[in-house]
Design a protein around this nucleic acid. Sequence first.
RNA 1: GGGGCGGUAGCUCAGCCGGUCAGAGCAGAGGACUCAUAAUCCUUGGGUCGUGGGUUCGAGCCCCACCCGCCCUACCA
Length: 528
Amino acid sequence: MSDSTFYVTTPIYYVNDAPHIGHGYTTTIGDVLTRWHRQRGERVWYLTGTDEHGQKVLRKAQANGVSPQEWVDRLVENEWKPLLRTIDAANDDYIRTTEARHEAGAKAFWSALHEAGAVYKGSFSGYYSVGSEEFVADEYVADGEGDDAGHKVSTLDGSRLEHMTEENYFFRLSDYAERLLELYREHPEFVQPASARNEVVSFVERGLRDLSISRSTFDWGIKVPWDDKHVMYVWVEALLNYLTAAGYGVDQERFEELWPASIHLVGKDIVRFHAVIWPAMLMAAGLPVPQQVFAHGWLLVGGQKMSKSKANGIHPTELVDTFGSDAYRYYFTRALTFGSDGSISWEDIAARYTAELANGFGNLASRVAAMIGKYFDGALPASGEQTAAEQKVVDTVAAAVAEADAAIDAVAPQDAMTAVWRIVDELNGYLTEQEPWKVAKDEAQRDRLATIMATAAEGLRVLAVVLNPVMPKACAALWESLGAEGPLGPLADQRLDDVARWGQLPAGTPVTKGPALFPRLELDAPQA
RNA sequence: GGGGCGGUAGCUCAGCCGGUCAGAGCAGAGGACUCAUAAUCCUUGGGUCGUGGGUUCGAGCCCCACCCGCCCUACCA
């Protein structure tokens, strides 16, 4: 694990949609995971990007009277890249499927498939909607009524359908059912969580059909290398981004460093593409499969799956404008079980902001900094003799850090936060019990007071480091408040495997009380 | 039709291979304290663990049936 790069991907988002919190969710979790691994000192590569080809994009561009390239450029610059800044994502790369490196890599991959004999020319037949210019899956085909009697119609838009046959290239997906099942058996971690794995296994057990992987009725896509009348079917082309961004076909050295990916984060709606089609294609091309495909669940707003059509779609900006990117990141990390569906609400975000961030973590930082300022003129005192109370803090911190670290490995960021919060609670309780404000009144107990302050400051030091992957802005402010950069170096360089070692902040470190990390918010009714 | 996941205190959720598993957080109630962002700390919850059967010495946790919700059952992405 540690000798190769921890390579994490989000799906590349289809530019036709506007970003919503579902996209932000996936990207946030990936960002938390990768920041955490970076602070372990691992080599990390975090990739996200956009999927920009396909008929829908073409049509949308035409409807807006611009070229598809202009259209996607506009969306990427105005919508998608800003999302990353909004949620404070630290991705290492951003792949666009309209980039030359993607086109070159995708073509190289197709050639490899072709040479391996995994592709053949065949015909795809099905019901075609002339109105919407696309094939309609059988489940959406119904017998027409009234004027349409005697014809098939689409249940999607009611348009009349014709049975058509189109010549396409096919991928021999059916050859891979056994090998895929073997993969799932031998590597149960390949598809996670178990619910997603079950779906995938049962799907494959029913047998696989070959997959039509090219289109010839429109041209907004990457041309098939040996037949420029065809463009690659956008789904299989999009999957290739994980390879092409890693340098496949254009930078072999980089590719070998990065591939195979450690985790593909995906929504559960697209798990099949990632856990069935994708590994089969890689097998066909003679490449290793990714180590894990992790499917997360839906965000439910008011008990319903979030969607624009139900008017409960929320733009990440709405939340970030009110609560800030740190709180946004914290909320999605803490409040949801990654891999399961989960409910979110404005009220819940507000409640957690107040209870956990402002009153819990933020206030803790304030009271400690205030007391060190008041009792020691802002110079961190040297700890005196430690009692059982201090030892309990030290032990709690060590256990919490270890537990959080294990949770991150299990792709359970919510459990990592639960563990870390035990430190917050322990520290708040420690201060209440030790009553340093009373100890301060007795000059004879100066040493005891110093010990309490030093212990609390050390606890904050650990929190700043451990929470930095989730809340980089607040933790930077805390690091500043602790005056830690001088003696210990930049926050991002603090290693998680060393963070629990006690007594790192030297005596004399200048502690200052800055603005509240999470100021209390006067919140009105939800905006949405 | 076949399959998957879920249905646990007002709310959001934990509960691994069955035996302190009936829990946490929040909300509500009472108390303590004052360093702090009117913050913190302590105490306080008696919820048929969807319904009905069954297996077992013992079942939220296993089996069967049923009810409810969401999802998958391939080429929109």
